[in-house]
Simulated assay, not measured.
Amino acid sequence: MADAARGGLGEAFPLGGMTLYPVPESVSRARRWFRKFTASYDLACSIDDCVLMLSELVTNAVLYGEAEESWRVRVEWWRAGESLRVDVHNPGFPADVRRRDPDADDAHGRGLLLVDALSDNWSVGPSRFGGTVVSFRIDAAWKP
């Protein structure tokens, strides 16, 4: 299996995914679909935390993804051992993705700060689709 699908945890198995238009309405659609498609797994981790992180990453993809031609945001979720990994792909540049430390009165810049606080790990790198993939991982996501 490709390194991108491994997530550093051994072999990863795809659980689901979605393709979204790069419009603000896609953020709420991603939240709804993720809840619906993960419900059958009876995850041990906080779905609310996962939905919040997914929402932040899709928002960033919609706001900051850029391409000369028509493009989409791709979201995938994987099982890697007992971990859940969620990937959000967009055509932006990996070097442009960074965690910020906003001032208390800043209106923006907290998305990756939240992902950093709520996930067990997160990463950014080149997407296999071209552009960027930002991922988060939740360990012990499945009930024993």
Rank of each mutant, 00 (worst) to 15 (best):
4 A>F: 15
6 R>T: 06
7 G>Q: 13
7 G>P: 05
8 G>A: 12
9 L>I: 01
10 G>M: 08
11 E>M: 09
11 E>S: 14
11 E>H: 09
11 E>A: 12
13 F>T: 09
17 G>T: 10
17 G>M: 04
17 G>E: 02
20 L>H: 01
21 Y>D: 08
21 Y>K: 11
22 P>T: 02
23 V>Q: 13
24 P>A: 10
27 V>F: 01
28 S>V: 08
32 R>N: 12
34 F>M: 04
34 F>I: 03
37 F>V: 13
38 T>F: 05
38 T>V: 11
41 Y>P: 05
41 Y>Q: 11
41 Y>E: 07
42 D>H: 14
43 L>W: 01
43 L>M: 09
44 A>C: 06
45 C>T: 14
46 S>Y: 07
47 I>A: 00
47 I>S: 00
48 D>K: 10
49 D>V: 05
49 D>W: 11
50 C>W: 00
51 V>H: 00
52 L>W: 06
53 M>Y: 07
54 L>V: 05
54 L>R: 00
55 S>N: 09
56 E>G: 02
58 V>P: 07
59 T>A: 13
59 T>H: 13
60 N>R: 10
61 A>D: 11
63 L>V: 06
63 L>F: 04
63 L>M: 11
63 L>D: 11
64 Y>F: 15
64 Y>I: 06
64 Y>E: 05
65 G>I: 13
65 G>T: 03
66 E>A: 12
67 A>S: 15
68 E>I: 12
69 E>I: 09
70 S>L: 10
71 W>E: 04
71 W>V: 04
71 W>M: 07
72 R>A: 13
72 R>S: 15
74 R>I: 11
75 V>N: 04
76 E>W: 04
77 W>P: 01
78 W>Y: 14
78 W>H: 09
78 W>L: 04
79 R>W: 08
79 R>T: 09
79 R>Y: 10
82 E>M: 12
82 E>C: 09
83 S>G: 05
87 D>K: 06
87 D>L: 06
88 V>P: 03
89 H>Q: 03
89 H>M: 05
89 H>Y: 13
90 N>T: 04
90 N>E: 14
91 P>K: 04
92 G>A: 02
93 F>M: 15
95 A>L: 14
95 A>Q: 12
95 A>I: 09
99 R>E: 15
99 R>M: 15
99 R>N: 07
100 R>Q: 10
101 D>T: 15
103 D>H: 12
104 A>N: 02
106 D>A: 09
106 D>T: 02
107 A>G: 06
108 H>D: 11
109 G>L: 02
110 R>I: 15
110 R>A: 14
111 G>F: 06
111 G>W: 01
113 L>W: 08
116 D>S: 15
120 D>C: 08
121 N>P: 01
